[in-house]
Design a protein around this nucleic acid. Structure first.
Lengths: 163, 163
DNA sequence: TTAAATGCAAAGCTTTTGCAATACT
DNA sequence: AGTATTGCAAAAGCTTTGCATTTAA
């Protein structure tokens, strides 16, 4: 499991503001770095490293995948980027901003994004019941979405079975 | 995300009972299959495919990893086996039995296993709040365990930050 | 006998690493 | 100038697949 240090979440409204932040950390502003940032600023949803490398919608010049991964790691250490694992898909990266949490459907793979606070009650209940502080920013809540539930994509969880 | 069909959970007290079940499904009883079953029956906690292939504690003759994966898939289709993804670790396999759910600590990687029903309230709250039926059998709840919380392995989630 | 399952090797997919060349500061 | 960063290539880690051979039924 991830042992990476958790860094402070940072918000930079524009890629230019992000540049200031990077310099403050003694990091250089390179073309590859800019590409990653621009892809993330342009994105509406979290992107995979490969999507970033290819450039959003093929607009921007594509860049090296290894460098993208290295830059994502750097940006995450600085606190500008976060990634989430939505099921078996590759890791998805987004600007930190306000911490979002996720519900993922294991039948249709649909994702519901929740804003900070929407899971407060659920997390409080988990905290009170088990003493754990859950967070669903890095690994989501997995289950069945309302649509798939309605379509009867039911599973065994409800009725313990015997052979 | 997993699109595999969900199969009924089955319980077979012994490897011999499992054999009956397999035959009922028209499956053959082979040496490789037996090894997988015996490893799982002997295990106290979920095992990775590699651990199964190597034989628990090196006791049993080791077998081919590809066959182990194929057999695990087969056994899962029959409903005798389940697997769970505990963070970034390889998938972990166990006999179905009563559905267990998991809490995983992202600081110390510790796992707390919950018996069926212990998360009922949490799941009901999620159901009522969002309409989703969560289950934490295949993907766990990830967060910080009480120990790591006490040691102050805190992270940003609690204090929204500004640059 | 014959179809299912195995073992081995090879490939797939995501991510990481080594290293000489490049380019930011 | 000096070093952080890049690009490329190669490898690592987990899992799947192809195929000729074995084996359970």
């Amino acid at each position: 499991l991830t042992r990476a240090a958790f860094s402070q979440a940072l918000t930079a409204g524009t890629a230019d503001e992000a540049v200031v932040l990077l310099r403050r950390h003694g990091l250089r502003i390179t073309a590859a770095r800019r590409l990653v940032l621009e892809a993330l600023y342009a994105a509406e949803a979290p992107l995979s490293a490969e999507q970033i490398a290819e450039g959003v919608a093929g607009r921007v010049p594509r860049s090296d995948l290894a460098s993208v991964y290295r830059n994502l790691e750097t940006l995450e250490q600085v606190g500008l980027v976060r990634h989430v694992h939505l099921g078996h898909a590759p890791g998805m990266y987004a600007l930190s901003g306000p911490a979002r949490e996720y519900l993922v459907c294991e039948s249709c793979s649909g994702v519901r994004t929740l804003e900070a606070g929407e899971l407060a009650e659920v997390k409080r209940l988990i905290r009170d019941s088990f003493g754990w502080r859950a967070r669903f920013t890095h690994f989501p809540i997995v289950g069945l979405c309302p649509d798939c539930l309605a379509e009867g994509h039911d599973h065994e969880e409800q009725r313990p079975a015997h052979p």
